[in-house]
Design a protein around this nucleic acid. Structure first.
Lengths: 229, 229
DNA sequence: GGTGCTTTGTCTCATCCCTGTCATATTTCG
DNA sequence: CGAAATATGACAGGGATGAGACAAAGCACC
């Protein structure tokens, strides 16, 4: 997760190569295909963090790819940036309807695409942009996958890590158990809401440094929030 | 109440699914139906915070649904955003006349609908849009679920919190015990009206800062109102 | 493929706070 | 003053959260 994984669906070989080179240079892991069906396979095999999707591609059409990505639980949340020809105003509307997050009309500068990708990633998942997240005396390094509090490094399990990361990305905000399940466990998880309590307790225990300073606030009948000290 | 409840009335399954997904993703609780009559039933069962209403639907027509929503006391105040076909200029006028708050012509981008929904909610119920509510020396942060008075943070129980939020959303207005029960406890709660008195007292106690400044006004034989200092 | 450790979801029990109601005191108004 | 309405204090029950335990599943390592 340290390196954002991009899936580039583009059937112009020259453009594909150019972009691949630029993205690799910026520290992204890029996989490319020219074919819509193959894109779906690749996406389901190893869910990317963002999809760059040319509208006019071989095989399954762009709009269809978009739709199917949204339908699959694994990839439903993956942001999509569309590339369209300038003339196809209508496509743009349909693309946005279908769930694309942003679009770019050809021709565009690679730099602009880079910027959009970075912006979308930062919005959706700040950690993916590789930024160190800080909240109070907590520091989370998404690249190294490490957390520390007041300099002391913490030992967290996978779920605790994701839970804490989510809280640190939205400090002070109260989330219901249901919201936490959606955000941390994934939409549609069939998990008992009370289970969240247990993980909150485990997270609390894992980040405990002294009895008095618990940064996780319980809001009765509402949920939990992280209160940076 | 932290999560705004939307009712989506749309008979194009593809569009409905897409919107449902996007809204769920943005933290809304969405219920969907393709049928006008069913929409009315759903709305009366559990009043939504906002209705997105496609004009061209099966069963009762959009304009009729709109009218009936307005007629029912429970849903009379619920904002409505209409979706119309581009050609039907005439419908748009009649829709707004009938009491829709905003409209969008198809095709539209989900993002735009999101923006409108947020805008309408912010206007009608700031708390649902996550905005800080202020009333006199009281400040309520619905996102963090915190209340403070003159800078001092207050400690409220769940019901007291909801009650205060409701008052702060409608300052200076007098509400009967029955209205408060409906608004704060939920429609159809089988609770003794006198119980409201008790919670008013608890709320008064919780926000008390000195004996003289009680912002809650008792209106004999009518109810209670919040009077911002 | 087996083994042992870690993680994870659920259950149960204990605790504490919240909540609705009642009895009673106090206020308001005719 | 008397009646109605409201404020207050007390209380029992319920509901929500915290803590510990445990079996199943996942996982790394051999």
């Amino acid at each position: 997760m340290a390196v954002p994984k991009l899936l580039l669906v583009e059937d112009d070989p020259a453009l594909a190569e150019l972009l691949e080179y630029r993205f690799a240079n910026e520290g992204y892991a890029v996989r490319t295909t020219a074919d819509g069906d193959e894109a779906l396979v690749m996406a389901s095999e190893d869910a990317p963090d963002l999809v760059i999707l040319d509208w006019m591609i071989e095989g399954t059409s762009g709009i269809e790819v978009c739709r199917r990505l949204r339908r699959d639980k694994e990839t439903a949340h993956v942001p999509i940036i569309m590339l369209t020809a300038r003339e196809a105003e209508d496509d743009r509307v349909r693309g946005l309807e279908t769930g694309a997050d942003d679009y770019l009309t050809k021709p565009f500068s690679p730099r602009e695409l880079l910027a959009r990708v970075s912006a979308v990633l930062r919005r959706v998942r700040p950690a993916l942009a590789g930024e160190l997240i800080e909240a109070g005396d907590l520091k989370l390094d998404p690249v190294a996958h490490k957390v520390e509090r007041r300099g002391r490094s913490l030992q967290l399990g996978p779920t605790e890590y994701r839970l804490l990361q989510f809280f640190m990305e939205h400090p002070r905000r109260v989330f219901s158990r249901g919201q936490l399940l959606d955000a941390v466990w994934g939409t549609g998880s069939e998990i008992e809401e009370r289970t969240v309590d247990v993980h909150i307790r485990r997270l609390r225990k894992a980040i405990e440094i002294d009895k008095a300073n618990d940064p996780i606030r319980t809001v009765r009948s509402a949920g939990y929030a992280l209160e940076p000290a």
